[in-house]
């Protein structure tokens, strides 16, 4: 019970007639990194703004670290570190000045502030940039300052809106490692467009589309579902009748991809590849290609979002 750091219940936000977020509910436990996915304009940023008190929800409840955000906003906001899409940086301050200000704003006592700034800087790889003006830093360094700002008061809940945008590959790896580290003791919500990022750092995935939650699953479950579920085969002389293939144990359906290619779908535990090869040799189809197909997170994402789009069109 105590382990649930973020609890969102039936959260909605309307902008006039537009329902930017529509009845979203989820929970995040301590030690979880939640990947928040969705196409542009799906309501990711709106949800994050509501979680951090930047935007009031139209309906719904948000509980952070057991504190209701709407009833006790000050106490609840103290438990959150937030990096918005555009890092909120004062370009005319140096990194040290800025982080010292953030420490004070988050009610870190003056004598502990210096240590907190040092800790945040070393966690984000900013040791050498302390005296530089934020306005003169590169985009990647500015992004790191933004993350340092979000974790300076070691909040139980960290919310990062597209934290790896504009970073070079090495920085991205470092930031991912940092997020994974944060995820051990805090709850992290991370929105991103980079799907492999979710697979490397997140323990759970939420997909939101048109304001509605379309998927909420742990990465473990998702990976199980994402296992080998199909075989892609090509023949020199494709069989006219695929009934023989369909009769193989475990095969659920067959799709003709044209040009002698077939996709053979099977259950998650079946292994029909060897039987299929034997069958092809026996019948002299001339097997030229046989490769297992993995569904990627990208496919899941496209299917869910696409389906949903079709549904909306049909309804209209």
């Amino acid at each position: 019970m105590d382990d649930i750091l973020i609890r969102v219940e039936h959260l909605s936000r309307h902008f006039g007639a537009l329902r930017a977020v529509d009845g979203v509910s989820f929970e995040v436990r301590r030690g979880e990194v939640l990947g928040f996915l969705g196409p542009n304009g799906a309501g990711k940023s709106t949800t994050m703004q509501m979680l951090t008190g930047n935007l009031a929800p139209t309906t719904g409840r948000i509980t952070l670290n057991g504190i209701d955000l709407l009833e006790r906003p000050r106490a609840a906001k103290g438990c959150v570190g937030y990096l918005p899409e555009q890092p909120p940086l004062y370009r005319e301050l140096t990194v040290d000045e800025y982080l010292a200000l953030c420490a004070r704003l988050n009610r870190i006592p003056r004598r502990e502030a210096r240590a907190a700034v040092g800790r945040a800087k070393s966690r984000c790889g900013l040791e050498s940039a302390g005296g530089r003006l934020i306005g003169n830093l590169s985009k990647g360094f500015q992004q790191r300052v933004g993350i340092a700002q979000a974790i300076i008061h070691t909040p139980p809940v960290v919310i990062l809106d597209e934290p790896t945008v504009g970073l070079d590959p090495i920085q991205i790896r470092e930031i991912r490692a940092l997020i994974a580290e944060l995820g051990r003791e805090h709850s992290v919500i991370l929105s991103t467009h980079i799907l492999p990022e979710v697979q490397t750092v997140c323990s759970r995935v939420l997909i939101i589309d048109r304001g509605r939650l379309v998927l909420s699953e742990s990465l473990e479950d998702l990976n199980r579902g994402l296992g080998e579920t199909g075989l892609r085969v090509a023949f020199e002389q494709p069989p006219a009748d695929t009934a023989a293939i369909a009769a193989l144990p475990g095969v659920t359906s067959i799709q003709d991809l044209g040009g002698g290619r077939l996709r053979v779908c099977h259950g998650p535990d079946a292994e029909p590849a060897a039987a299929l090869a034997r069958l092809a040799v026996e019948r002299g189809w001339g097997l030229t290609e046989l490769s297992p197909e993995r569904r990627t997170l990208e496919q899941v994402f496209v299917e869910l979002v696409h389906q949903d789009g079709n549904r909306a069109e049909n309804a209209a």
Binding site: Q49, T52, Y82, P84, P88, L105
Partner: peptide, 14 residues
Amino acid sequence: RGQTLSLLLSAPLT
């Protein structure tokens, strides 16, 4: 304009 308002809004301030 500079989107820095969210720093103040998400800090524990009224």
